[in-house]
């Protein structure tokens, strides 16, 4: 079921287009990756979804109904540009943010203690923010985002500023929130995490959406039909006989084994390749080279000519 929908969003800043006709959908209970290079318009789209900025054209629908200020409560938003009051105490400040989201003071306190304990920062409760390391501040910000248990969570670059250990912690928490039923929009440059966390993703480049779908769909769409094979036998014979269906990209021989990369062509399928090869020897391993999201990202973004954008 579609929980949140951005329909045909246009937004112009005085001399450049930030978004032109972008639509995305967030289904209930899924993690949706919003990808794109710097300045593509991701943050603008998120700001429109959260009601911070208004679109020039287009609308935001929550369960099919148009955006109202009340919906703000249902969203937890962790902006990319985020900070805390340096002179304020950590606990006090977290309660402040929670109350702005409509929680009562007591409620906020109880839930905060739970999260602070979970993240192992309870002893920092009465410290001023300026005494905290950046990673700890990020933890506090993460907590204040998810504290009021919103239906929709939006994370803009949640991993920036975290060390690998804490990145994993956050990743784990995001998945746990998903399991508890939250729907999550997740914007990042970190493609490895997209593959691990996201169910679906969209790629925005230069104000336009150029890709949208489930992760496996996207990967299928961009698969290269290249296989990596370790082979024992008379490879040269095989190569000479069947080059109408296969391009051989790379051959190396080591200790009697041949390592090859083969691309299928003219509608050949992988099972045919296997049977063809078995006539000439033994297959030790056979892998399809699946493009990583990273590869797809770079390929798509670099295909288009660069244009100066600024936010």
């Amino acid at each position: 079921m579609t929980l949140l929908e951005a329909v045909d969003i246009h937004k112009n800043f005085d001399n450049h287009k930030a978004l032109s006709g972008v639509s995305i959908k967030l289904n209930e209970g899924e993690v949706f990756g919003l990808l794109g290079p710097n300045g593509a318009g991701k943050t603008t789209l998120i700001r429109i979804i959260t009601g911070i900025t208004k679109p020039d054209e287009g609308k935001i629908l929550f369960s099919g109904k148009e955006f109202k200020q009340d919906y703000i409560k249902k969203i937890g938003y962790l902006p990319e540009e985020r900070g805390l009051y340096k002179k304020m105490k950590v606990g006090e400040q977290s309660i402040y943010f929670a109350r702005l989201k409509g929680m009562s003071k007591n409620d906020a306190k109880i839930k905060l203690k739970y999260w602070f304990d979970k993240f192992d920062i309870l002893m920092w409760w009465d410290k001023k923010v300026e005494e905290l390391s950046k990673g700890m501040q990020q933890k506090v910000q993460f907590i204040t985002t998810v504290l009021h248990e919103p239906e929709i969570l939006i994370f803009d670059e949640p991993f920036s500023g975290f060390d690998p250990v804490n990145q994993n912690l956050i990743k784990k928490e995001i998945l746990e929130l998903k399991n508890k039923g939250a729907s999550i929009i997740f914007s990042t440059h970190n493609m490895a995490s997209v593959e691990q966390i996201c169910d679906r993703a969209a790629l925005i480049n230069k104000s336009e959406k150029i890709l949208d779908g489930t992760i496996s769909e996207i990967k299928k769409q961009y698969k290269t039909e290249i296989y990596e094979i370790v082979f024992e036998g008379n490879f040269n014979k095989f190569g000479a006989s069947l080059n109408a269906y296969y391009d051989i990209l790379e051959i190396t021989s080591k200790l009697g084994k041949t390592y090859v990369k083969v691309r299928l062509k003219n509608g050949a399928i992988s099972s045919r390749l296997i049977t063809d090869m078995l006539k000439y020897g033994k297959i030790i391993s056979f892998n399809e080279l699946i493009p990583s999201m990273d590869d797809i990202f770079i390929k798509l973004v670099e295909n288009k000519p660069e244009r100066a954008t600024n936010e």
Binding site: I75, P79, E81, K86, L100
Partner: peptide, 13 residues
């Protein structure tokens, strides 16, 4: 400058 503002305007106008 401390970038608190975006956190706050995601809850209040």
């Amino acid at each position: 400058t401390s970038r608190i503002v975006e956190i706050i305007v995601s809850s209040v106008k």
